[in-house]
Design a protein around this nucleic acid. Structure first.
Lengths: 202, 202
DNA sequence: CGAAGATGTGGACGCTGTCAAGATGTTTCT
DNA sequence: AGAAACATCTTGACAGCGTCCACATCTTCG
């Protein structure tokens, strides 16, 4: 493969460039032309891989959802033998650790959720898939009788909303100033532990 | 006042235009020039009132935070004689009803939180002020002994994160499809009731 | 070999945010 | 009242952006 004219792996190079830009300037600083420059390619090359700018940003967001999806799935499977309480805690930690450890991806995931209204769009399908293990676990917790059945749907929404909201507040710098004495891990443990102790009273 | 050359109330007209645009095209569709067009004014008139585009969007976001702030403050004062449980429920409803009833403002509030990293920026100050009543209420609930003191900070973060996360998921169209049999009010009641019953077990 | 397709280039277009210079009202000070 | 300072709005210019188009280059496959 001659590396003069054809890049060879432009799609991935562009996604990496997007990651860099989001880290440096935030999701609103992403530019098709800048991503192309960083990949060493002309300004209109990306169109052959991602269509338009939204396509590129959506692809980066989908990549993030797939990473999170994989982590949640793994956590779900690895904790199969544990109590529902420990399992839920492990899922919460996995979600928050991902959001805090991959801020560029997480920011774009949120941004694309905001901008893309169609529930059937790939990005939203990916988001929904990621939450399947959580939904399963909630079903099991409801069967334990800890949550009454008529509240199951609300309870699932609340759990999703809580980890999502905490991650979003953290990532948009609303929470860190209140936890300067914490490592990120200690913060996550405190949040997850408190959630768990409220849901499963002793 | 002659209405030919000078507008008279351009600042408000621009904020209203931003609201329209957000409703029609989302926060990412806002354009300084389009807002100026809708206000019937030249493309660079807005700079005298809001500096640049971020200034205009931030002003719209701040306006939203002040509206929410006022609602939460009012709710907090009006429920002074009630139990902490009823008071917390009322605050949750007020927050969610605002987010769902003023989606344009809420979307911009979130967008600006994402984009503006400086915790001392006016938009973030306004956001923090809005949550003062909630923080106060959490302090009182902790005094009741329902939540142990060493978890107070986490508990406050969780409450904030939960209403914020639920509102964000709803507004970005993630939740409505699961609640098509609900009016928005019924959805809010279900969420708030479930949160409350988890926090205050009978 | 040659056609078809995938991938990358370069230039054009209209739109955008920002800036500078000037025009037009309004307020304030003398 | 008059002038000076100020606030507000216009016009024109500029570079950067996303998108489209025609074309160049490389790969694949009949």
């Amino acid at each position: 493969m001659s590396d003069s004219y054809h890049h060879g792996d432009l799609a991935n190079a562009l996604l990496e460039a997007v990651g860099e830009i989001v880290t440096e300037r935030g999701a609103s600083g992403v530019t098709l032309r800048e991503a192309a420059r960083r990949a060493g390619v002309s300004h209109s090359a990306p169109s052959h891989h991602f269509g338009d700018k939204d396509g590129l940003m959506e692809a980066f967001g989908i990549q993030g959802w797939e990473m999170l999806s994989e982590r949640l799935r793994t956590t779900f499977l690895e904790t199969e033998a544990q109590t529902h309480r420990l399992r839920l805690e492990a899922m919460g930690r996995a979600y928050l650790h991902f959001a805090m450890g991959q801020p560029a991806h997480y920011e774009m995931m949120m941004r694309m959720m905001d901008d893309c209204e169609d529930p059937l769009a790939p990005i939203n399908q990916a988001a929904e898939t990621a939450f399947m293990p959580l939904a399963l676990l909630v079903g099991q917790i409801v069967q334990d009788g800890i949550i009454p059945e008529h509240r199951a749907r609300y309870f699932a929404s609340i759990l999703w909303g809580t980890v999502h909201g905490i991650a979003h507040l953290w990532e948009s710098d609303r929470l860190p100033r209140f936890y300067e004495d914490h490592t990120p891990e200690a913060f996550v443990d405190g949040i997850v532990g408190t959630m768990s102790s409220v849901i499963f009273p002793e």
